[in-house]
Design a protein around this nucleic acid. Structure first.
Length: 725
DNA sequence: CCACTCCA
């Protein structure tokens, strides 16, 4: 790949991501006048802008040649004509072409500078009113602002990707604010990291032992611990992380930590965990949340328990008539007890009857005329409960009325939710902060039932909330371990339970009743694994088991990149399964009629949710729009909305959480070492209802089984709840 | 060194 430099003029912008300024544009080159496609981060540029680009040519199999930008510079308008074009594009209403010509004739190459710095010179000209000049100056300043900001960022080594966010946050004052305290960027621009800001700070002449630097370093490292799932960091680990990475001495760092505590940014707690003393450093917010959860639950638990509201016979009859299901003895006991508790937990793996229990509780609440509120952490999980119970459920965010602008929730302690019984499903996905906000908004005298499977993937945010609630021993927990008879004959479910315990799956387990099958194909080389996956999906599975490759088979993989990542697998599977037909391109992907796709963002208007999978039923090549069929429901997508879609022949294991498929194919190779975890393997294989095929190496399987990472998430909620009176 | 939610 050779790096080259070229210059030209932006003719058309085909795509622009406003968050990170990723742009695909057409550029007319100065040398040859040929139009080329340029791709990359281009902040603050517009039509007709002239640029000098550094980068290299890429040959894309479908889109042909495109120039990938690594570095760019704005060429400011210099010649009379360039300046005229530039001013025209500003679009100031009362500024006619004739006036623009007058301006450029009068001030020449200095026109722009004059307008900005000494507008009174322009007002002095005949025919230029005060308002026109002011509008012109404003429009120009706004344009130049971003361009100047970009130069400033480049000068200080801050990547231009952050430009849009910095400008949005600081506006006109950006350079001034950054020069004043570059470390503020860390709290104002969430995507930027300490090393980048540190480099800028050093360029700005900020001393290495500046307390602001040390505090920022600590807070950033603490944030990293949180993004790894920890609610707090052990003091020693936190300090050494900063010391090693950024060459800071222990003494001043320790002082900075004390300052952070005084300023109220962190909490320092001395905890005892398994006989060991830990000096725990919490981000203040997480400490308040953890403490809040414990206190709130303790308060709810202090309310007197109620007597069973209905007799066992009545329960039996209600469930029988409403659901046409005869509950087991164990389920009857649970149903009888559960509404007496203030807070209870139902947990269990697949096949243990969690869903039946939730449906029964909902039916029972209905029968008792309790006001029942149901919610889940994701849109799709919420819709699933709606489907199984026939009652409206929403995301927890929606329930609490999350305000997009302020980032706050409308419902809280001062404005509690209304309802008697709250059922929250998929609680394993709820993190510390959200749990706190939910509990804060629940009436103290309400009944809360948490439902979830602690062996699934841990929440994205920090904490082990569901496990901790159970481990505290304070909440009545119904751990459903009995696997129903039908499920007992299923090698998939039996192996899922082996994996839960960290045991190697038993591939000898033969199906006895034709319920399900479970296979392991040993293949070492990742490329071979990829080819094998394609072969299985296109030939082997459809012919042997009569599954439809699109509707019945789902490939699940831990990551996006690499030979066995979703991108590579999707390309290969698309080629093998759906190579012909009308296609449109969007952001480097090809969508073709007949493709299997997944929707990526909750869209209440369209009634499609993050994780919904459908088939492209129609493609309009001219308009660049398409239509997706979600199990019979057709949803239309405009060109700009195509970024909400992705190919879904292969999807990430994370995305599959909460869904089930007749057959799943799961690559397990050491190429995704970092993601080889027991929960991931467990989640992947429990998505399959009838057929599960794992492909990879025994070694990768063993690594995954041995890695019980969620157990290593640091939190104190379990003990805190146990200790809170 | 990787994955991911919510937000109209």
């Amino acid at each position: 790949m050779t790096t080259l430099t070229l210059s030209g003029r932006i003719k058309r912008i085909r795509y622009r991501n406003d968050d990170n300024s990723y742009t695909i544009a057409e550029l007319v080159t100065d040398d040859t006048g040929v139009t080329i496609i340029v791709v990359g981060i281009l902040a603050g540029i517009g039509l007709e802008d002239r640029l000098r680009l550094t980068g290299s040519w890429e040959k894309h199999t479908r889109f042909g040649d495109q120039f990938r930008i690594t570095e760019y510079d704005m060429i400011f308008p210099e010649t009379g004509e360039e300046i005229r074009t530039y001013l025209k594009r500003l679009g100031v209403k009362s500024l006619s072409n004739a006036k623009i010509r007058t301006l450029v004739e009068r001030f020449g190459s200095e026109t722009l500078e004059v307008i900005e710095t000494t507008p009174e010179k322009v007002t002095g000209l005949k025919g230029f009113g005060k308002v026109t000049v002011e509008n012109l100056r404003e429009a120009l300043t706004r344009q130049m602002e971003v361009k100047r900001l970009i130069s400033f960022l480049k000068e200080h080594g801050i990547p231009v990707v952050h430009c849009a966010q910095i400008h949005k946050c600081y506006g006109t004052k950006a350079a001034e604010r950054i020069s004043g305290n570059p470390f503020d960027l860390l709290k104002d621009v969430p995507t930027i990291d300490f090393s980048t800001v540190d480099q800028a700070a050093s360029a700005l002449g900020i001393a290495e032992d500046d307390p602001r630097r040390l505090r920022a370093c600590l807070l950033f490292a603490l944030g990293q611990f949180a993004s790894e799932g920890h609610v707090f960091a052990p003091r020693g680990d936190l300090l050494s992380r900063c010391m090693e990475k950024h060459h800071i001495e222990h003494e001043p760092l320790s002082e900075a930590l004390s300052e952070l505590k005084t300023q109220g940014h962190i909490s320092a707690e001395t905890l005892t965990k398994e006989g060991e003393t830990i000096h725990a450093i919490y981000p203040k917010e997480l400490f308040l949340a953890e403490q809040g959860i414990a206190r709130r639950l303790a308060m709810m638990l202090s309310m007197p328990e109620e007597a069973p509201p209905v007799s066992r016979d009545e329960i039996l009859e209600t469930v029988l008539t409403k659901l046409a299901i005869k509950p087991s003895e164990e389920q009857l006991v649970t149903l009888e007890e559960i509404l007496c508790h203030r807070v209870a937990v139902i947990t269990g793996g697949p096949g243990t009857g969690k869903t039946t229990l939730v449906r029964s509780i909902a039916a029972l609440c209905d029968h008792l005329r309790h006001e029942t509120v149901m919610a889940a952490p994701t849109g799709r999980a919420a819709r699933r409960i709606t489907e199984v119970t026939g009652k409206k459920a929403s995301t927890i965010h929606k329930l609490l009325k999350f305000d997009f602008k302020t980032g706050a929730f409308e419902h809280n302690r001062d404005k509690p939710l209304e309802g008697d019984v709250f059922i929250i499903d998929e609680v394993s996905m709820v993190d510390t902060l959200l749990m706190h906000r939910f509990l804060d908004a629940v009436p103290v005298d309400a009944t809360v039932v948490f439902v979830g499977d602690i062996f699934q993937l841990p929440s994205v945010g920090p904490g082990n909330v569901l496990s901790d609630l159970i481990d505290s021993g304070r909440l009545k927990t119904y751990a459903l371990t009995r696997i129903f008879r039908q499920a007992q004959e299923s090698p998939i479910i039996m192996n899922a339970h082996r994996v839960r315990k960290g045991e190697f799956p038993d591939f000898e387990a033969k199906k006895e009743s034709g319920l399900s099958e479970f296979y392991f194909i040993e293949t070492g080389d990742p490329v071979k694994v990829m080819e094998r996956v394609v072969e299985l999906c296109t030939n082997r599975i459809p012919t042997t088991w009569d599954y439809n490759p699109l509707e019945d088979i789902q490939v699940l993989t831990p990551m996006h990149k690499g030979d066995v990542g979703t991108i590579s697998l999707n390309n290969a599977l698309q080629k093998a399964l759906n190579a012909k037909g009308d296609a449109i391109e969007s952001l480097g992907r090809t969508f073709r009629k007949g493709d299997k796709v997944m929707h990526l963002k909750n869209n209440y208007e369209k009634d499609v949710f993050n994780g919904d999978i459908g088939i492209i039923s129609d493609v309009d090549k001219k308009e660049k729009t398409l239509e997706v069929d979600y199990e019979g429901r057709k949803v239309a997508y405009e060109t700009e909305e195509l970024d909400e879609l992705t190919l879904a022949y292969a999807i990430s294991v994370h995305k599959s959480q909460g869904s089930e498929y007749p057959a799943v194919v799961v690559p397990v190779t050491t190429q995704h070492y970092a993601l080889l975890q027991r929960n991931l393997l467990y989640t992947a294989m429990t998505r399959g209802k009838e057929l599960v095929i794992l492909i990879g190496t025994r070694r990768a399987m063993e690594i995954a089984l041995a890695n019980n990472r969620p157990k290593l998430r640091l939190s104190y909620l379990d003990q805190r709840l146990a200790e809170t009176p």
